[in-house]
Amino acid sequence: MSISVSNISKSYKDVKALQNISFEVNEGELFGLIGPDGAGKTTLFRILTTLLFADEGSATVADYNVVADYKKIRNNVGYMPGKFSLYQDLTVEENLSFFATIFGTTIEENYDLIKEIYLQIEPFKNRRAGKLSGGMKQKLALCCALIHKPKVLFLDEPTTGVDPVSRKEFWEMLKRLQQKGITILVSTPYMDEAELCDRIALLQDGKILEIDTPQAIINHYPKPIFNVGANNMYQLINSLNDYEYNHSVYPFGEFVHYTDNRSDFDPKTLKDYLESKNLTDVVIEKTVATIEDTFMELAKPSFSKTSEHNVK
């Protein structure tokens, strides 16, 4: 077992950042923590990288206990905190060789591991990190986290604020690193990235909503889900929200994802209802749920407590 977390809880003053979190990550697995800001992702990362003590529970990383063997863990993990922690006033090359030095290694020694990524930023090796674009900073930060050939790699929101192209390239890199035997724990607020992980944990308000493979999570979605489209998005959303049988109404791209709370739901009745609201071009077709649908379905109960309101 590469990472094992059991019953971890952590509070800051009266905010419960993590509540009774347990999960395990296998060796060589690409495991995703999926959740919005404030879900507790960073706190969990800090506990696992020995930067924070948990209030309760225990955890091991690479079979070392995060409290007792913290020194060993610090030698064996790579950590990339949120917001790409680099020295802005050092050049690309200086950053990399600095991190190599403090881990007691050199760029040459582990060059084959980072080669593929580093080649993309090498043309800018004399540029200061502060002047790089988001995508390049991200790649440099990844190189820095890998330079000592860690067994476990912790990546806290590595794709936040980065454009879709760089995000895609980044995930391709992670897949290749995984093939080299590195266990990767990665967090992201982008639900569409969840499908790229082997297994994921959905996290909201410090609680795990579900842990499974992305496919299994999608399969677990409890209701038939429909794409609803019409000529006017705004009126469509309002009409659906006013519809007495609705279970959930969420805009998704050009459609609205709709679920009904009747077991014998007939799309025809909905179509009639919408047309009675002066909507035209009404389309209703069955679709498959996404991770995001599941997330919202699971997050809904806790959500309605904090925000009962909806736009009228």
Partner: peptide, 13 residues
């Protein structure tokens, strides 16, 4: 502030 301290702490230094 930059967050680099986190990396230094996690390093074997």
């Amino acid at each position: 502030e930059l967050g680099t301290m986190e990396i230094l702490l996690v390093s074997p230094l």
